[in-house]
Structures are given as C-alpha cells and as structure tokens.
C-alpha cells in the first residue's frame, strides 16, 4: 500500500508538485498519468525519500520509506532505467544489488532469465544496452528483492510492443497475487489496459483520480446521426450537454438516456455507444492540453 497526503515540492517560487494526495491499494495497478514535466518523477522520488519534500507525508506499507529497515525487500523501486554505470556488466549491477539488500545471490541468474536477458546480454556492459534492455535490467533489480510494492517511473519507455505486453502481464500477475503497483507514464495507451486506478496530474496538481470505470463513466456517450441538426435539437430539448467530436457528438449522459432523447426528438441514429477509449483519451488530452499549449 502507498499513501500520499499533501505532497508538495517547491523549488524556490516554482511549484513542481502541489498538495498531492492519493492511495494505492494492494491488488491493484495504479497508472500515474501526466505529460512530461507534470511532476510525476518528482512525486515518486518524494515517496522514496530521494527528493526532499517541501510539505506533506508519504508512506509505503504504512511507514516512511526511509524508515523501512531494508526497503528493497519490500518495495521495488525503478525511477530511471538509464541510471546505471555504463562501464559495469549487466549481471554485475544485479549482483551488487542482491548483495546490498541481502537477497539470495542464487536468484541473480533466475531473475535475469525472467526479465528476458540471456547470458550474452547479462555479460555485456550496460553502456552497450538499448533502453529496452535497461528497462528489463531495471525490472530485474526491482524483482530480486521479492517486494510487495512496485514503484516504477515510465517502465514502458524504450520497450518494443512485445516487451510492453510482456511487462503488462508481469505487473498484472504481480497485482493479482496481492501486490501494489504504482507506475507512471506520459502515454495513456501504455497504461489504460493495465491500470485499475488512474491518477492524472498536470502542472503538479491532481486533476482526476479514480477507477478506470469511474473515469470512463463520466465520459458519456458517443452518438452519431445522419441528420446531425435534428439530433442536436433533440438532445438540447432533453437538456443533455454535448460536445462535438468528428462526425458525431459526445453526450454527457448514459446511452439509454441519449437514445430515448433521440427517439423523442425523432432523430435517426447511426451509432450509439459509451464513449470509451476515445473518451479517456479526450479527457487526458483536455486535462493536459493547457500545459501543452504553454509548452509549444
């Protein structure tokens, strides 16, 4: 379990993270979403005691991370897969980790195989690794301590599509066995099939959170008609808020309510369905667009 309350980080006058509170429960995968620079990494580093908090509290398994006697045996942390000594061999970095945390050294080769790094790859120096191989090596570091909680910053970065599916299954299995997973991403489609819970942040502030279903439900219904004006009048008459999307409307109501309103207004329909996927994507884009406009 991970709990954050009022987490805040300021660099002088600049606010990186503002009053962030959330909870990650055992048995769930929480996707921590936001554009680059939104404060995701800073938040994760604050939880792990690497970045000094300006205000607020964070606990992992009910304890301040820094007070956990041997944290890597309880919490697997991967904050930057690239942060490895380029002159050290892959297997050696994992041996150092195992030795530090007192994990069984016999697990080193086993875990390397599990993450898909063969003998030849494990013997190479990390400087010669692709980003995808570094992510796999990073996951090996995380898993060798046999933790109950995983905190991963952009773990899908650099993985090929096959690797992303592999990681998804690995993390799903971990959560299904009762583990807690918190992973960040700046790409919605990387986490939307995996995560049970979503946290969306923008400019250091939490802008949406909840289960994936909740966030989807709030996104209404996609409805299309060959006679769009008639449909628009019908929905307006029923007092349903709408937003235009390409060739159709996103209505702020359940499909059944929208269907009845269309029927009452005599509007023929060509499509009527919950605005899944696209809706979440729109939510993500709309929540983060202000920042992206600022950035461009």
């Amino acid at each position: 379990m991970i709990e954050a309350s009022g987490l805040t980080k300021r660099y002088g006058a600049q606010v990186a993270v503002q009053d962030l509170s959330f909870r990650c429960e055992p048995g769930t995968v929480t996707g921590f979403l936001g554009p680059n620079g939104a404060g995701k990494s800073t938040t994760l580093r604050m939880i792990c005691g690497l970045t000094v908090r300006t205000a607020g509290q964070a606990t992992v398994l009910g304890t301040d991370y820094r007070r956990i006697a041997n944290p890597a045996r309880h919490v697997g942390v991967m904050l930057d897969a690239s942060a490895q000594h380029s002159g050290r061999r892959g297997r050696e970095t994992l041996r150092l980790c195992a030795e530090t945390i007192g994990a069984d050294p016999g697990l080193v080769d086993e875990v390397l195989t599990l993450v898909g790094l063969d003998r030849a790859a494990a013997r190479r120096r990390v400087g010669k690794y692709s980003l995808g191989m570094r992510q796999r090596l990073g996951l090996a570091h995380v898993l060798i301590g046999d933790p109950e909680v995983l905190i991963l910053d952009e773990p899908a970065n650099g993985l090929d599509p096959e690797g992303i599916i592999w990681m998804r299954e690995l993390l799903r299995g971990f959560a299904d066995r009762g583990g807690t997973v918190l992973l960040s991403s700046h790409l919605l489609n990387e986490v939307e099939t995996l995560a049970d819970q979503l946290l969306l942040i923008s400019q250091g502030r939490l802008v949406a959170s909840g289960s994936k279903q909740e966030l989807l439900a709030g996104n209404g219904t996609l409805v299309r008609s060959p006679e769009p004006e008639v449909l628009a009048r019908a929905l307006a008459a029923a007092g349903i808020e709408v937003a235009a999307t390409d060739g159709g409307l996103i209505a702020e109501a359940d499909p059944e309510v929208v269907g009845r309103a269309a029927l009452a207004g005599g509007a023929p329909l060509s499509e009527l369905r919950p605005a899944e996927g696209a809706g979440l994507e729109q939510l993500f884009l709309s929540l983060t667009s202000a920042e992206q406009e600022q950035g461009s």
Partner: peptide, 23 residues
C-alpha cells in the same frame, strides 16, 4: 557473496562496505 538475510533487517555496514569495495 554472503548469505541472504532476513528481509526486515537493515543491511549491516560491513555488508555495504563489501559492496562499495566491489564497486
């Protein structure tokens, strides 16, 4: 490499010293 330890015990300084020597 030394034997695995109890997961709730803080790694001994000598163990960390060995790791640093290895580095």
């Amino acid at each position: 490499m030394s034997a695995p330890t109890d997961r709730s015990v803080r790694p001994a300084l000598t163990r960390l010293g060995r790791v640093e020597a290895r580095k």
